[in-house]
Design a protein around this nucleic acid. Structure first.
Lengths: 160, 160
DNA sequence: TTCACTGCAAACCTTTTGCAATTCT
DNA sequence: AGAATTGCAAAAGGTTTGCAGTGAA
């Protein structure tokens, strides 16, 4: 593992990924990425459209759906189950996550006041959670766990 | 806490709750409860309608939506976030849950093979999970957690 | 130039709402 | 009888699909 600092920009990272997959960098994808980059809120396709419209950019809702799908496929955004909305994946704690192979995890803190959504990238909690779940699941039920999704609802400091 | 055994039937329990709330026991509510009682699958309104139609019972989809809402309000069913479907709440481990006030919890094991959905009523995991989450949430983010929803996807023994 | 992507239109599916008719209690 | 509940029709959302036109590489 090199100590090379990675680009701190979510957008740059996303563009790199798209490019490396032979996908095209279009105006619409740039716009969507730019909005995702500047908010902690998870957004629906219509909310994304409204934001872009507000800043004078024309884009079709259908395109946003397709871009969301594309970004989700390449693990550049998360889908929040309780709302169906989309949020950019966090960068920055990749080393911690790599170790636990939870780079693309699905643990969220959702503020019911402002909609702010934070990822929980915490190896500690992941370890605990998975160990317990697997111990629990394997013995009584025999379930083989292949994925998980955890959403915590509450109020962020600003909204309390 | 009396050692009084409670009725083992989900349907009886549900009817009691409805009655105690001044709600009416209609043919349609009985039908929906009966189907929920006999499956571990979480069902959508349309799936419920199909099952009832298959057994020769006529019911409007709108009524099913309203009945689902009613049952959810009175904590007689759970809503699975990843699918929007509804599953009966488990009875039977109430004592364990009472202690932790997790009578109506939101932890599921979902089989991606057959759709079977089990509740995770486990005080141990609940304790661990909440302690960790709260410790984690309070210090760095200041989030006040008011609810949570955990879904574990995988394969049940039969589907592996 | 080529192929991915977008926009438009339309279809589709799910969920909600209003209101008159029904049916529990 | 009186109020809650249902069914029907229609509206309202949200999401997907097909296809011709556009634009990135």
């Amino acid at each position: 593992m090199t100590a090379t600092p990675f680009t701190s920009s979510f957008v740059d990272h996303a563009l790199e990924v798209l490019k490396s997959q032979g996908l095209r960098i279009t105006r619409q994808r740039r716009l969507v990425l730019a909005v995702l980059d500047t908010t902690d809120e998870a957004l629906s396709a219509y909310e994304m459209k409204d934001r872009l419209t507000a800043q004078g950019e024309a884009i079709d809702t259908v395109s946003i759906y397709r871009i969301f799908d594309c970004l989700e496929t390449h693990q550049l955004v998360h889908r929040v189950l309780s709302s169906g909305k989309v949020r950019r994946c966090a960068l920055g704690d990749e080393t911690a996550c790599d170790k636990h192979q939870h780079h693309h995890c699905h643990h969220f803190l959702i503020c019911q006041g402002c909609g702010r959504t934070d990822e929980l990238h915490c190896p500690e909690i992941l370890d605990q959670l998975e160990a317990r779940l697997e111990a629990l699941a394997v013995s009584p039920s025999g379930f083989r766990i292949t994925g998980h999704h955890l959403e915590l609802m509450g109020l962020c400091p600003a909204c309390q």
